[in-house]
Design a protein around this nucleic acid. Structure first.
Lengths: 133, 133
DNA sequence: ATAATTATGTTATAATATAACGCTATACTC
DNA sequence: GAGTATAGCGTTATATTATAACATAATTAT
């Protein structure tokens, strides 16, 4: 029952590596300017790779920031059920990987009784280091 | 212990009314083109009003769509703790107003023990009417 | 009445994202 | 392995979303 993964294409690899190098989420055009030396010249090349990487769960999009961050769980099985905490003052983002929260939300039924395939949750607050300064 | 509400300004009123008329979320530039006859000419006028309306909780932003929707609870007390369900196939959005979910999330503590001031949660799935077609 | 704050109107531009086209590489299937 | 289907590439142009900056006017607070 191995997890069959197609190999990434050249551009996908370049862009994933760049995102993984950064702890903080990065913006599409910042990715672009940082990988131009590797032969990636134009926005569509970046956005195509981003779309694919999101689809397969290697990265996630932080919607409230239009930024992109690598998935922390090595073999992301729930690419479309993500939770982040975001610091209002320094914009630090960290992925929340909590099975209980995850289960609670994927089991959640709205009042019409439907369950959901995925979710994106972004928590806002003040991070530890900003709080003490 | 009344809820002291400052009256809205002219542009804020115009834009809020337009958003409230629409059941579906609306986009900023679509708002603009629909309120031009009322004397609103340029994007900053729209975005300024949107920012304010969000701040006071009259509307919410649907981050994954860059769209804006009126708050359903007449006197929104939690402008920054919002949950929506979004249909993947027709893009319909509805606000989820569930005190239990609300409490669960506002009480949620991440592994560093911090609580959050607010959150934005967007659930994805297939709505009833899309499912049966 | 004055000062402080909030909102307005405007022009210009920044930042984010996609359409469309022709071509190339990879994988699939017979 | 030839043929075909699928996914990816490179490129140009353009669409969409959002803000900077500045001068003025209205509102609110002291």
């Amino acid at each position: 029952m191995e997890n069959k993964q197609k190999p990434l294409s050249k551009n996908q690899k370049i862009i994933l590596e760049y995102i993984q190098k950064n702890k903080k989420p990065v913006k599409a055009y910042s990715i672009l300017s940082n990988v131009q030396k590797k032969g990636i010249n134009a926005p569509p090349q970046v956005y195509r790779a981003l779309d694919k990487l999101i689809e397969i769960g290697k990265i996630h999009k932080v919607e409230s920031q239009n930024s992109f961050v690598a998935c922390k769980t090595s073999d992301c099985e729930t690419p479309h059920a993500t939770a982040f905490s975001i610091c209002d003052s320094c914009d630090e983002v960290s992925e929340i990987n909590d099975p209980k929260l995850f289960k609670y939300l994927l089991d959640y039924k709205d009042n019409s009784g439907i369950k959901f395939d995925g979710y994106n949750l972004e928590f806002f607050g003040t991070c530890k280091s900003c709080e003490t300064s």
